[in-house]
Amino acid sequence: TLEEDLKKLQLSEFFDIFEKEKVDKEALALCTDRDLQEIGIPLGPRKKILNYFSTRKNS
């Protein structure tokens, strides 16, 4: 689940933002850096999230 993935990244504090915006794993895989910025995710966590999901998509 998205919540489990965020826990792996030690970013579970952002789960509420994704839940509020109705972003699940499938939607997050389609998000850009700009999308994450617009919903209030800071730069460092955005980079970690985007890297994590891009490596999952390619495997």
Results as ranks from 00 to 15, higher is better:
45 P>V: 14
14 F>H: 02
18 F>A: 08
23 V>Y: 15
16 D>V: 09
43 L>Q: 15
30 L>D: 14
43 L>N: 14
20 K>G: 06
30 L>C: 15
14 F>V: 02
41 I>R: 05
43 L>G: 14
40 G>F: 00
16 D>Y: 03
20 K>A: 12
59 S>P: 10
21 E>N: 14
42 P>G: 02
16 D>E: 12
39 I>W: 15
48 K>E: 12
11 L>A: 00
24 D>N: 13
14 F>E: 02
40 G>K: 01
41 I>K: 08
33 D>T: 06
28 L>K: 03
53 F>P: 08
43 L>M: 14
2 L>F: 06
29 A>T: 11
34 R>T: 12
21 E>K: 15
50 L>I: 12
19 E>S: 10
15 F>D: 03
41 I>G: 05
21 E>T: 14
54 S>G: 08
27 A>E: 14
50 L>G: 05
33 D>S: 06
19 E>N: 07
55 T>W: 05
10 Q>H: 08
10 Q>E: 13
48 K>S: 09
6 L>G: 01
1 T>E: 10
57 K>S: 08
27 A>K: 15
53 F>T: 06
36 L>S: 05
34 R>G: 14
55 T>I: 13
12 S>P: 05
1 T>W: 00
54 S>W: 03
10 Q>D: 12
27 A>F: 15
11 L>N: 00
12 S>E: 11
58 N>A: 07
31 C>R: 07
51 N>Y: 03
55 T>S: 11
15 F>P: 02
25 K>G: 12
35 D>H: 12
39 I>C: 03
28 L>W: 04
37 Q>V: 10
48 K>R: 12
24 D>S: 15
28 L>N: 03
29 A>Y: 10
48 K>H: 07
19 E>I: 11
22 K>D: 14
51 N>P: 04
44 G>P: 09
28 L>P: 02
11 L>T: 00
10 Q>A: 07
53 F>W: 04
23 V>M: 15
11 L>C: 03
18 F>S: 03
25 K>E: 14
36 L>R: 03
42 P>Y: 01
31 C>N: 05
51 N>G: 12
4 E>W: 01
28 L>G: 04
9 L>S: 03
37 Q>C: 12
13 E>V: 08
59 S>Q: 05
18 F>P: 10
41 I>P: 03
23 V>C: 03
54 S>F: 01
43 L>C: 15
52 Y>W: 09
26 E>H: 13
35 D>W: 03
50 L>V: 09
1 T>P: 00
10 Q>R: 06
50 L>T: 07
47 K>Q: 15
47 K>E: 15
21 E>C: 14
13 E>S: 06
14 F>N: 07
36 L>P: 03
11 L>F: 00
22 K>P: 00
39 I>D: 05
29 A>R: 11
48 K>T: 14
47 K>D: 11
13 E>P: 03
4 E>L: 04
38 E>D: 12
40 G>T: 01
2 L>K: 03
7 K>D: 09
5 D>G: 02
42 P>H: 00
12 S>C: 07
45 P>E: 14
33 D>E: 10
37 Q>P: 00
42 P>V: 00
47 K>V: 09
24 D>C: 09
37 Q>I: 12
42 P>R: 00
42 P>S: 02
52 Y>E: 09
57 K>V: 07
31 C>D: 08
43 L>V: 15
20 K>H: 07
14 F>L: 11
4 E>Q: 09
13 E>F: 00
29 A>I: 11
32 T>P: 02
18 F>H: 02
34 R>K: 09
30 L>M: 15
13 E>W: 00
49 I>W: 03
11 L>Y: 00
22 K>E: 13
48 K>M: 13
12 S>Q: 13
12 S>V: 09
50 L>S: 02
29 A>W: 04
44 G>E: 15
40 G>W: 00
25 K>R: 10
30 L>W: 14
51 N>D: 14
3 E>K: 13
6 L>S: 01
37 Q>R: 05
26 E>A: 10
30 L>N: 15
45 P>N: 06
22 K>I: 03
47 K>M: 15
5 D>N: 05
27 A>P: 04
18 F>Y: 05
53 F>L: 05
21 E>L: 15
54 S>H: 07
45 P>C: 07
15 F>H: 09
29 A>K: 10
42 P>E: 07
32 T>M: 05
39 I>R: 11
42 P>N: 04
57 K>G: 10
7 K>L: 07
45 P>M: 11
2 L>I: 11
41 I>H: 05
32 T>C: 02
55 T>A: 12
54 S>M: 13
38 E>L: 09
33 D>N: 04
7 K>R: 13
39 I>F: 15
56 R>C: 10
34 R>V: 12
25 K>V: 11
50 L>M: 07
39 I>P: 04
54 S>A: 12
16 D>Q: 13
59 S>L: 03
11 L>P: 00
21 E>G: 12
38 E>P: 00
24 D>T: 15
10 Q>F: 03
44 G>I: 14
30 L>A: 15
59 S>K: 02
35 D>P: 00
5 D>Q: 10
58 N>I: 07
24 D>H: 02
2 L>V: 04
53 F>N: 09
5 D>P: 00
43 L>T: 15
53 F>G: 07
49 I>M: 09
16 D>A: 11
14 F>Y: 02
30 L>H: 14
46 R>K: 04
1 T>N: 14
51 N>F: 00
59 S>E: 12
23 V>W: 15
24 D>R: 04
57 K>E: 11
52 Y>F: 13
44 G>Y: 08
57 K>Y: 06
21 E>F: 15
46 R>Q: 06
52 Y>M: 07
43 L>I: 15
38 E>C: 08
25 K>N: 02
12 S>M: 08
25 K>L: 11
47 K>T: 15
52 Y>I: 04
6 L>R: 00
7 K>S: 09
56 R>Q: 13
35 D>V: 01
21 E>Y: 14
36 L>N: 06
33 D>W: 02
22 K>A: 10
18 F>R: 01
52 Y>N: 13
52 Y>G: 04
25 K>A: 10
18 F>K: 09
47 K>P: 01
50 L>P: 03
